[in-house]
Design a protein around this nucleic acid. Structure first.
Length: 246
DNA sequence: GTTGAGCGTT
């Protein structure tokens, strides 16, 4: 059965999370399940996927029920060749909620309170709160998601995590294009409409601009009636320069 | 169809 990650995160507070890196982009939870389940009881397996394409990002999270089993799996599966690629198995450092994890186990924000537990905070309430907030801000949900993707893009992330932080601008061609496209798609509405209007000759369709130059309005204007033969256009374009008859 | 440091969801 492959129902991992389809029903949301189960009780991870009592499970150990393992991080599997270096896996192939085609490896799925079903492929890792038998591998990890052989060394221990796998509670759940989750593989982050891209929301745009849906492909795996190249790493998966395996949750074990016991630490000893998880440790064994790490020692046995770490360095194992899966699908022709050597995978890297290690304990997760951060949790789904950006929480700290020790030895694969999630430590709540206050390890001391774990024992005392002054606040009777159940994880159900936590999820409920989050859901409520998300539903309430459905308006900014779209923007939030879009912004998140842009910042967490594979390219952006890779460059950001580079060993040496060298902000090279030569490689920003893709980003420039994206930015330009986005700007001309939403900002061109009230940004500078007077700059793009007076550019009929700069149209991106030269072959369809004027297939018949002989019938251009200039000639008709001169032939018919020319109020200002010197400069028909307010910009004073040298229309005379061009020979009307080729 | 591609790539390869890293840390997660209905």
């Amino acid at each position: 059965m492959s129902h991992f990650g389809r029903s949301g995160p189960p009780d991870i507070t009592d499970t150990y999370s393992l991080l599997v890196l270096n896996i192939t982009f085609r490896t799925t939870a079903d492929d890792l399940f038998p591998l990890f389940d052989k060394y221990g009881k796998v509670v759940d397996i989750f593989i982050p996927k891209d929301r745009r394409t849906g492909d795996s990002r190249g790493f998966a999270f395996v949750r074990y029920k016991y630490a000893d089993e998880a440790q064994k799996a790490v020692d046995r599966l770490d360095g194992r060749v899966v699908d022709g690629r050597e995978i890297t198995v290690q304990f997760a450092k951060y949790g789904p909620n950006a929480e700290r994890i020790q030895k694969g186990r999630i430590i709540e924000s206050s390890p001391r309170s774990r024992s005392r537990s002054p606040r009777k905070r159940h994880r159900d309430d936590h999820y409920k709160d989050r859901d409520y907030r998300r539903r309430s801000r459905s308006r900014s949900y779209d923007r939030y998601e879009r912004d998140r993707y842009r910042g967490k893009d594979r390219d952006s992330r890779r460059r950001s995590r580079s060993r040496s932080a060298s902000p090279v601008r030569s490689k920003g061609r893709g980003r420039d294009r994206y930015d330009d496209d986005r700007r001309s798609s939403s900002r061109s509405r009230s940004a500078s409409p007077a700059r793009r209007s007076p550019s009929p000759q700069k149209s991106p369709s030269p072959p369809k601009a004027s297939p018949t130059r002989g019938e251009s309005p200039e000639r008709r204007s001169r032939d018919g009636r020319s109020p200002s033969p010197r400069s028909v256009s307010p910009r004073g374009r040298p229309a005379d320069s061009r020979s009307p008859s080729s």
